[in-house]
Amino acid sequence: MFGLLEVCAAWVMVFEEEFDSPKRGGIYCMHCFCQQKEIWELKLEGDVGADPIWCNRCGCNFDLEDLPITSELKNEVREWASVYGEWIDWDKDILIPNGIEMEEKHNIQGAVLTEKIKVELRGKYKVKFSFSTLARHYTNEKF
């Protein structure tokens, strides 16, 4: 019996050829908590301690390693995700100097990565980017 986390993270991949080949002609089907059980809408969103790939409908978090994109792009996404929240001093729970600018730069990088993901997935999924507003929460700015 699988728990909810195992079911949530489950990917069913049927490959016509090896994934990293230039054509990457596989069929990918992801299962999550959505009513139809197959997700076709993904979201790139930074978070502390979680991979940045989510179901855009139910919020299920997916393992970046299972996303059918190139290793190079996975590395870019992983590096981008690893710096999420560096604009916050977590020990003091305060925004660091230039925190808003750091978050804005992170958001721009995330938007660029989202476009790269869309290209590599070639219409297999809808992909959107969720901009971080964490710094503005610390400054009580409207966003």
Rank of each mutant, 00 (worst) to 15 (best):
P68R: 06
D93W: 10
G123P: 06
G110K: 03
V77K: 07
L4Y: 01
E18I: 01
D89Y: 06
I96Q: 11
C34A: 07
N56K: 15
L73W: 02
T70E: 05
N98W: 07
Q36K: 08
E101K: 15
L95C: 05
N75P: 01
T139C: 05
C55S: 06
R24L: 01
E115D: 15
A9H: 09
S130H: 08
F33K: 14
K124C: 06
S21L: 04
I39Y: 01
H137I: 06
E76C: 11
K74T: 04
L95P: 04
V112P: 00
F2G: 03
I117V: 12
V12L: 09
K92N: 12
K37C: 06
L5E: 07
G46K: 04
L73D: 02
C32E: 01
K126A: 07
A135H: 10
A9T: 08
F33P: 00
K118Y: 00
W87H: 12
G3R: 05
I88P: 03
I108A: 13
D89L: 06
W90N: 07
K118C: 04
Q35C: 08
G26C: 03
G46N: 03
V48K: 15
C60Y: 04
C32P: 03
V48D: 05
W40E: 14
E72N: 13
G99E: 05
G99H: 04
R78T: 12
E79R: 14
E101C: 08
W11V: 10
I53R: 03
K124G: 02
K43V: 15
A50Y: 15
Y84S: 10
C29Y: 06
K118A: 00
D66V: 00
V112F: 04
E16L: 01
H137K: 12
I39R: 05
V77M: 14
K116G: 03
E101W: 03
F129M: 02
F62L: 13
S21G: 07
G49F: 12
C60H: 07
G123Q: 06
Y138C: 03
E86I: 13
R78Q: 13
V12M: 02
D63K: 14
V14Q: 09
T133M: 06
C34T: 12
K142G: 09
E38P: 01
I96V: 15
K37N: 07
Y84C: 14
L73Y: 00
Q36F: 00
P68N: 07
A111K: 15
A81Y: 09
E72A: 11
E115C: 03
V12I: 09
E120R: 00
Q36P: 02
